[in-house]
Design a protein around this nucleic acid. Structure first.
Lengths: 225, 225
DNA sequence: CGCATGATTGACAGCAGTCAAGATGTGTGG
DNA sequence: CCACACATCTTGACTGCTGTCAATCATGCG
């Protein structure tokens, strides 16, 4: 079909949300998917914008965040290829509850609410997958709330480092800048910088730019409680 | 049917989750619902418990919360009759991600995961309603994260007061104790007490036990940003 | 009436945010 | 290849919110 760009159905099958669907359904999904692209730093939607659908990241990275009255941002999550965002607005409320911005050159597929809701009726697996995705997000959010209210910055940092640490290696590569990491952890760059250097002076980690080497995993686990 | 206690189907129709279903489906839901009851202060499930299903509050009130290493609790939400909890564990992961406790004498209906997942396939409305419920929760959590990371305690309190304020009246009745409210707002009773008395001395509210009268709504709105 | 729970108040300390300046790193254009 | 502009990161000094500890006071229930 001329209206479905190359490789969309294959891409969809690789995602958690649309994996394992029957070919015919995937074909229909592809036919309602609208390709969009954004340049680095471009705002995709703002809090309060009327929501006509949701996005699926195809290439690049997107951050979803909230802004305080003073302009400080709190990152809710960073989305990678294969992950959806803005989907909450499809099922509840008419407006996006947060901001989203492309962190680099990004391509997405946009699904219009009405077209998508139609499709969801045709294959219960879609709804089921979406339930799983939303449930995972709720878990992430719950953990975030726990970290913000019950843990101090060092504990949040330790938890983050351990969560992104590969199983077998001790080297961690930060996929976002330290400023952005600070916003994700609910703090400011200055504080993050101080904690990082304290960890380093205590011999728990070694920091070189965006590369962080875990030297004492047990100490980090101790700190994060 | 002998196995479905009185009034269950009627009760289900009043809930957001199971309202608007066909009578036959509601009948089947009622037939797999297991009535349970808990006394005040009783733990319903703990973080990490294997999750075999979820609850729907029938009478009473339940709090869902997390505990820090030092024993401080952060309330994620307080559930009233008609609201489900523990449902996230049905769709993602095998364990409950938090604690839940009856705040007073409470009765619930328990739905076993496998039986419920079977039913969900038979009526897409159930999945659709569940998506709406999860989406609403995600919005609540996102707002909670915003409040915790971007607002100070006075702003969180102001936001809470305004959120529970009835449209037409200025009297607010706290449905939970001030200690519990402190935990919900991510602070401690001492701090909450201080902020309440400061608001009062500034003439913004009047506090009498659990009754709080909003005297200057605009000032509160100003504070919550 | 007495105990248990919750609420308040005071004194104190410390984590972390703000402001400001300097250092480091990165990318671009000459 | 270098130099400059810009963003990011780091460091220092300082302030203040808020948590902790402790004691007192109110409330409600048996």
């Amino acid at each position: 079909m001329a209206s479905t760009p190359e490789g969309i159905t294959e891409f969809l099958d690789d995602t958690l949300l649309f994996g394992g669907l029957e070919a015919e359904v995937r074909e229909r999904l592809a036919s309602i998917a609208l390709p969009r692209s954004f340049s680095r730093g471009e705002l995709i939607f703002s809090e309060g914008d009327p929501a006509e659908g949701f996005h699926l990241v195809r290439k690049g990275r997107v951050k979803v965040f909230q802004l305080s009255a003073e302009g400080k941002e709190q990152i809710l999550h960073v989305l990678w290829p294969g992950e959806p965002f803005g989907e909450v607005a499809v099922f509840a409320g008419m407006n996006y509850p947060a901001y989203s911005e492309a962190m680099e050159r990004t391509e997405t597929l946009f699904f219009r609410r009405d077209a998508f809701l139609n499709l969801i009726g045709s294959d219960p697996i879609i709804a089921s997958n979406m339930l799983a995705v939303l449930s995972l997000r709720l878990r992430q959010f719950a953990r975030m709330i726990e970290n913000l209210s019950l843990k101090e910055v060092p504990a949040r940092l330790a938890a983050y480092l351990l969560s992104v640490k590969p199983e077998d290696r001790s080297k961690v590569h930060l996929s976002i800048s330290k400023s952005q990491l600070a916003n994700l952890l609910g703090t400011v760059p200055e504080t993050l910088s101080r904690v990082l250097s304290r960890f380093q002076s205590q011999g728990m980690i070694r920091v070189k730019g965006r590369e962080i080497e875990i030297l004492d995993q047990e100490a980090l686990e101790e700190i994060c409680g």
